[in-house]
């Protein structure tokens, strides 16, 4: 019974992410193929709105995958392949945008929001009225003392 659950769980969690790489595209060398997959996952299909070339079935994605492999086989490093695609298609082709003048807002916005949030929070905490609780009345003191007594006797 337990095994059945395990298998079901494995089926749900171990399914590979969608991919479009066709067997005919793959490189015989497993290391190079792994590198090609890694590069392909960093490149965005230029005909689709938000797919990597690794996932896309578009024809141009196929061509780009083949070219990625060709360049890797020719001795390019992963970064060189990505740089080549970047030189052809610009920022659009990168799924992880570079840090440049036109992407500063993109990269810095989360940090600025965090700092802004911390600032607002600090202001609010500081401005909160910190009125000390009113001192106990005579009756309350007496009641407390009585309670204390009962507690000790028990």
């Amino acid at each position: 019974m337990k095994l059945r659950y395990l298998i079901a769980l494995a089926a749900l969690t171990l399914t590979p992410a969608a991919q479009a790489v066709e067997p005919s595209e793959m490189l015989p060398d497993a290391t190079l193929e792994a590198r090609a997959r890694e590069v392909s996952k960093a490149l965005r299909c230029v005909q689709c709105q938000n797919e990597t070339i690794d996932e896309s079935n578009a024809e141009i994605a196929h061509d780009m995958r083949v070219l990625v492999r060709k360049r890797i086989v020719a001795g390019d490093s992963n970064q060189q392949v990505i740089d080549y695609m970047y030189s052809r298609y610009g920022d659009y082709v990168l799924l992880k945008p570079r840090f440049a003048a036109n992407t500063i807002a993109l990269w810095c916005a989360p940090l600025l929001l965090l700092i802004g949030g911390a600032f607002v929070l600090r202001q609010r905490l500081r401005d909160r009225p910190t009125a000390a609780p009113a001192p106990l009345s005579a009756e309350e003191t007496a009641a407390l003392a009585a309670l204390d007594q009962t507690e000790r006797r028990a």
């Binding site: 230029v46 005909q47 024809e59 141009i60 061509d63 780009m64 083949v66 070219l67 695609m85 052809r88 298609y89 610009g90």
Partner: peptide, 13 residues
């Protein structure tokens, strides 16, 4: 046929 020049030109469609 394999779109290498097209990619070099940054063609998308």
């Amino acid at each position: 046929p394999h779109g290498e020049a097209a990619i070099a030109f940054g063609v998308t469609a």
